[in-house]
């Protein structure tokens, strides 16, 4: 599965969050405090950690949306990637087809290639006639189906998946999970981010446990998940602090 070629290489990755609070006052908060790891082509890397440990910021950096404030991130040249989200960027006044077309083209597809992938997306989403209707008419489950199908049917080098994916009803969920597992088992590179060790253990070949902006454990999924579980269990027993309490 993994041919060993390095797709992404993070070295001493740091990220400090800076946000304006009021007037000219800004607050900074260190989120990632030096992470070093590689992502190899074809592997499924799980990143596990509790709320506020820096998962989302890390995902944004890996997705190329924002730059780290410290350290380096070396990327394979010309790498394409998509963050699997449940249809946040949709224009609700456009049809499902138009939205899927835009999504595919935003991932670097040419107009012809995007158009060619539409039938596949339509079929996978099972939206039928609704695929030709404005997204504002969709139920929330239908929107998720569209988002998921679009991301699934767009071929990219790196697929980033955030948290639990409750996509639709039980029927579609099973299908979605199956499709995801197929992607994961193929030579698709996947980074799967979750707060659940169990979930990561189920799908990933290698795992990183992120705590307080640092890598606390790394390696075999089973042992990382076990360590993480022990930590969380101990935390709930003692009534420990949240990640952001200092």
């Amino acid at each position: 599965m993994s041919d060993g070629q390095i797709l992404l290489s993070a070295k001493d990755l740091e990220f400090e969050y800076s946000s304006r609070v009021w007037g000219f006052k800004r607050l900074t908060y260190p989120v990632l405090k030096g992470m070093t790891f590689d992502v190899r082509r074809g592997e499924t890397l799980g990143i596990v950690g509790r709320n506020g440990c820096g998962k989302s910021s890390l995902l944004r950096i890996l997705n190329g949306v924002i730059a780290p404030t410290g350290g380096t991130l070396i990327e394979h040249k010309g790498m394409t990637r998509i963050l699997l989200t449940l249809g946040l960027g949709f224009d609700v006044h456009l049809t499902g087809r138009d939205n899927a077309m835009l999504s595919a083209m935003l991932q670097g597809y040419s107009r012809e290639r995007a158009r060619a992938s539409l039938e596949d997306i339509k079929e996978f989403s099972e939206l039928g006639d609704f695929f030709e209707r404005p997204v504002k008419m969709y139920s929330s489950g239908m929107r998720s189906r569209l988002g998921f199908s679009t991301a699934m049917k767009t071929e990219v080098d790196l697929l980033l998946i955030d948290e639990t994916l409750s996509v639709g009803d039980q029927n579609f969920n099973r299908k979605a999970e199956k499709a995801m597992m197929e992607k994961i088992n193929s030579d698709q590179t996947v980074i799967f981010v979750s707060h659940s060790g169990k979930q990561v253990n189920k799908v990933c070949s290698r795992a990183i446990w992120l705590e307080d902006g640092q890598i606390k454990a790394e390696g075999d999924t089973k042992s990382v998940a076990r360590e993480y579980k022990q930590f969380m269990d101990a935390l709930s027993k003692q009534g420990g602090k949240t990640a952001w309490a200092s």
Binding site: R60, N63, I82, L88, G89, L106, Q107
Partner: peptide
């Protein structure tokens, strides 16, 4: 914003 959050366009 929502698009910027998702992809490096």
């Amino acid at each position: 914003k929502s698009l910027i959050n998702q992809t490096n366009v």
